[in-house]
């Protein structure tokens, strides 16, 4: 069970030091999450910034019952979705670009390489595929929840997910030639 009671109380009083401390505690993890939803690092920074402002302005609404990290995570995800909706992506356009294999960072340890490369693959998906894939595969939302969040039909959510998976599968085959049994 998270115990952030003291720092939340201090933040609610407007204590800037406590707010900074809270930000530092979660910023890196949430930035990692923002990168999954964003086209690029600049957009991820914007989502992180807007998301944390919402966290501080709505902190009073956190009722201490669930996980505090989960609560922040939901706000960040919603901020990313709002941004996605504001951009008004009406159609799932296949926007994937050629991946430059030279960018692979071979000098990192394997797990780190894998995470960064998977992240890059997700970022290359078209925005709607990326949203659906993130929400379903990584965050664990159901199609019903996704269609409510994105204001799309459940069938669209399913077909977007299916298409996203196909694209990811093709990209992994093409660029990495990594022998994993789901490819």
């Amino acid at each position: 069970m998270d115990n952030y009671t003291d720092i939340i109380k201090a933040c609610l009083k407007g204590n800037r030091v406590a707010q900074n401390r809270l930000y530092q505690l979660f910023a890196d993890k949430m930035y990692g999450m923002c990168l999954r939803y964003a086209d690029n690092e600049d957009e991820a920074k914007d989502i992180l910034q807007d998301g944390f402002i919402k966290v501080f302005l709505n902190l009073k609404q956190f009722n201490n019952k669930g996980s505090f990290e989960g609560w922040i995570r939901r706000i960040i995800a919603n901020t990313a979705l709002e941004r996605f909706r504001d951009k008004n992506y009406l159609f799932a356009v296949n926007m994937e670009t050629e991946y430059d294999a030279n960018h692979k960072q071979y000098d990192h340890i394997l797990s780190d390489l894998a995470a960064k490369d998977l992240l890059k693959l997700i970022q290359e998906l078209s925005p709607q595929y990326r949203m659906v894939f993130n929400l379903y595969a990584v965050e664990g939302y159901s199609h019903k929840e996704i269609c409510e969040k994105l204001n799309i039909k459940e069938g669209t959510s399913k077909s977007n997910l299916s298409r996203a998976r196909e694209i990811l599968k093709e990209k992994v085959k093409k660029y990495y030639n990594i022998s994993v049994n789901w490819v």
Partner: peptide, 16 residues
């Protein structure tokens, strides 16, 4: 496949 992405990226952290 979802599991691999979830495992690698769910708690992925990068310096803000």
């Amino acid at each position: 496949m979802d599991g691999v992405f979830r495992k690698q990226l769910r708690n992925y952290s990068q310096s803000a």
